[in-house]
Structure formats: C-alpha cells, structure tokens
Amino acid sequence: MPDFVSDKHLFHNPVEFAMSKIGGMYKMPILWRLKDKTWRYSELAHNIPHISDRMLSKSLKELLNDGFISKEIFPEVPLRTEYTITERGNKAVTIITALRNYGFELMNDFGIKEK
C-alpha cells in the first residue's frame, strides 16, 4: 500500500493509521469503559488510574472528533456531561478485545501475573 496523508501526518500503513486513532495511553481504556454504559466525565476521571484532567479532556475530544464517542451536555447546576460509545467505537472495541486477550496470553507466556 502506498503512503498516505491524513491530518497533515504521513502514514505508511492502515495499522499505523488505526493506532493513531485508538492508540495511546488512555483512548482504549475510555472506549473499554464506554462499551457497556454511558459514563459521566467525573466517573471516567475517578475510574481510570493515573489520568489527569488534561489527558482525559484531550482523549475525549479526539475520540469525539473522530466519531468513536458522542457527548451530551445537560444544562443543570452543576453542568452534567455524559459520554456514550458510537457504532464506530463499538467496532474499535472488537479490536481492543482481541488486543486485550493477546496481551493476557503474552503475560502468561512471560510468567506475569494479573493484579
């Protein structure tokens, strides 16, 4: 496959492109949590270990802009924001599940125990 450009970034293959959309430290954990239910911002912030507000906001914004999640804002005091996975996000969860299972296999192969 020839190289291609998306968002002013040169990609060499479709796997690299897909990983740019769902990879990184926090996008997959966010999608994993949203696969089963709608979450509020504060719930995600408290449930994802070691995530800063800046990184949560950035990851949510990128997932939202790329169509993996949707956002609903409720005009209440205090303001309530909820995030839900989209069809595109559910397709990504299929890949995340395969990667997760493979990760567990590798951990087992290397003698690493789950916490």
Score class of each variant (00 low, 15 high):
M1T: 08
M1N: 10
M1A: 11
P2C: 08
D3N: 13
F4A: 01
D7S: 12
D7I: 04
D7P: 08
D7N: 15
D7Y: 09
K8C: 14
H9D: 04
H9N: 10
F11T: 01
F11M: 01
F11A: 00
H12N: 11
N13F: 03
P14G: 00
V15Y: 15
E16R: 02
E16G: 13
F17E: 14
F17V: 13
A18P: 07
A18H: 15
M19F: 08
M19Y: 06
S20T: 00
K21W: 01
K21P: 07
I22E: 01
G23M: 06
G23W: 02
G24D: 01
M25E: 14
L31N: 03
L31R: 01
W32N: 10
R33P: 09
R33M: 15
L34I: 08
L34C: 08
K35Y: 07
K35M: 04
K35G: 03
D36R: 02
D36E: 13
T38C: 14
T38K: 07
W39D: 07
R40M: 10
S42M: 11
S42W: 08
E43Q: 14
L44W: 01
L44D: 01
L44S: 02
A45V: 05
H46M: 05
H46A: 15
N47F: 02
I48Q: 03
I48M: 03
I51Q: 09
D53S: 13
D53G: 08
R54M: 05
M55R: 12
M55I: 13
M55L: 14
L56T: 00
S57R: 07
K58F: 11
S59F: 00
S59K: 09
S59I: 06
L60F: 03
L60S: 02
K61G: 07
E62D: 09
E62Q: 08
L63C: 07
L63N: 04
L64R: 07
D66M: 09
G67Q: 08
F68E: 05
F68K: 03
I69D: 02
S70G: 14
I73W: 00
F74H: 11
F74N: 00
E76Y: 06
V77R: 12
P78S: 00
P78I: 02
P78Q: 03
P78W: 04
L79S: 02
R80V: 12
R80E: 15
T81Q: 06
T81A: 08
E82N: 13
Y83S: 00
I85K: 00
T86Y: 07
R88H: 13
R88V: 05
R88C: 08
G89D: 06
N90S: 11
N90I: 07
V93A: 05
V93R: 09
T94D: 10
T94Y: 09
T94F: 07
T94H: 07
I96C: 01
I96N: 09
I96R: 05
A98T: 13
Y102R: 15
G103L: 09
G103N: 10
G103V: 04
G103Y: 09
F104W: 08
F104A: 10
E105H: 14
E105D: 15
M107L: 12
D109H: 04
D109M: 07
F110D: 13
G111R: 14
G111P: 10
G111T: 05
I112R: 03
I112W: 06
I112Y: 12
I112A: 03
I112T: 05
I112K: 01
K113C: 13
E114Q: 13
E114F: 05
